[in-house]
Design a protein around this nucleic acid. Structure first.
Lengths: 225, 225
DNA sequence: GGAGTTACGCTACGGCTCGTAGCGAAAGCA
DNA sequence: TGCTTTCGCTACGAGCCGTAGCGTAACTCC
């Protein structure tokens, strides 16, 4: 496994948005940012038309109008490429102030559901998660590119709710962090399971019921007064 | 796609536990039940050692001690084979009476988490779910073999809780069915997300916090009296 | 017991994808 | 003008896919 080429073989610190790599590699021909965007867009398109298992890097290269070798110079393989292509989809998530915690949750969950309704997110996201169970580096890439980036929404929503007095303040930092993780797993997990496994739409009615249970629990009255 | 062989090409109604197919196919050499068990066990073993993407049907055939063609005679492809192999893992789930709804939930969630802690379940389950986003028949197979089979646990738990008076009776059948689906998505989704995406163990502490939120909601006191 | 039917093991095959090597040319920087 | 890095292109061995074909084994019905 000794590479004799002049190109870097794997590009380890290669985060998304390649133009933001500040250190090193100041000389020589820079990598084409346009090619990067074209490759990621072509990957999403291929996910839509072919799904995960039939997606091949050669096909993506043809769609993007670049050579197959360019793909292998920038990404270690199919897993890493799809992670980056899917991660871009989640950057559009936001948390507008809708006046109450319940409304805030419903709003962001509906956004999340809309993203998961797109076929490139459905097949791509679950596939890389499956692969990450046997690839620690890939799991970390997913966490950094997708999960942790969106956990900000939970933090912002909780802070806003505490300002409103809807949630009690949490003095213990460790306990607060665990709660954030729990909420994130419950929200993201429920929407993913509803959309992908149950294969039913996470529409307004479902989101309303979900939010009610999340805030008030099962023991509360099944129908709000 | 015209098969000229004497063997049935796909075996459409081929459920799990082949010995229980009562109608039709009364004559001829029966399919070996031992081979079936060996193939599914070999599939799980290959999932552990290779993961989803590197698992090949030829490799499974060698591990199981059968010919590769036997695999293709019984399953349409890799997807269907892994669904059946993984589905067996979930049959051990049960709902012992632990005295309260909270204890019942915690018990079954811990069982579910234990199954998802096994590598053959982790990589196999998510992979077939990802593939099912582009394969309606596969999604239905997953639903019949795994999801609907375990929804019985939610039904039993709710009935038991209603007998205890912990949950109000639901006169509307449609509303009750939607609630069952919602609970199932929330429970299974949260555990799956915690285990696979967050890659943290769903241990007793986490399950305890999850159950508290599920029953009482976020607005309740963060620490139980 | 024989005939009919189905499943099995085995071999072989074309076709496709993989991931890499090697080359000359292009695009920036000193 | 050199130096460095990336690019497109071609070619290649390797591996897996899914199926065909054949002879044999197992079971049922007559």
């Amino acid at each position: 496994m000794i590479s004799l080429t002049t190109d870097r073989p794997v590009s380890p610190g290669y985060r998304r948005a390649m133009q933001s790599r500040t250190p090193a590699s100041r000389t020589g021909r820079p990598r084409s940012a346009a090619a990067n965007a074209a490759i990621l867009a072509a990957t999403r398109q291929a996910l839509v038309e072919l799904g995960w298992s039939r997606l091949t890097l050669g096909d993506v290269a043809v769609r993007a109008g670049v050579a197959k070798t360019t793909l292998y110079r920038r990404w270690a393989g199919k897993n890493e490429l799809v992670v980056d292509a899917v991660a871009e989809l989640f950057d559009e998530l936001s948390l507008p102030d809708r006046g109450s915690l319940a409304a805030d949750i419903e709003g962001v969950v509906l956004q999340f559901a809309a993203i998961l309704a797109r076929p490139e997110a459905r097949s791509g996201l679950m596939a890389v998660v499956a692969e990450s169970t046997r690839d620690e580096a890939l799991r970390e890439r997913i966490r950094a590119s997708i999960v942790d980036r969106q956990k900000r929404l939970v933090l912002a929503g909780r802070a806003r709710a505490q300002e409103r007095g809807e949630l009690p303040p949490e003095p213990d930092a460790g306990e607060a962090a665990r709660t954030v993780d729990l909420i994130f797993d419950m929200v993201a997990g429920a929407v993913v399971h509803r959309t992908l496994v149950s294969a039913e739409p996470a529409d307004e009615e479902w989101v309303h019921g979900f939010t009610r249970v999340l805030l008030s629990g099962l023991a509360a009255a099944p129908r709000p007064g």
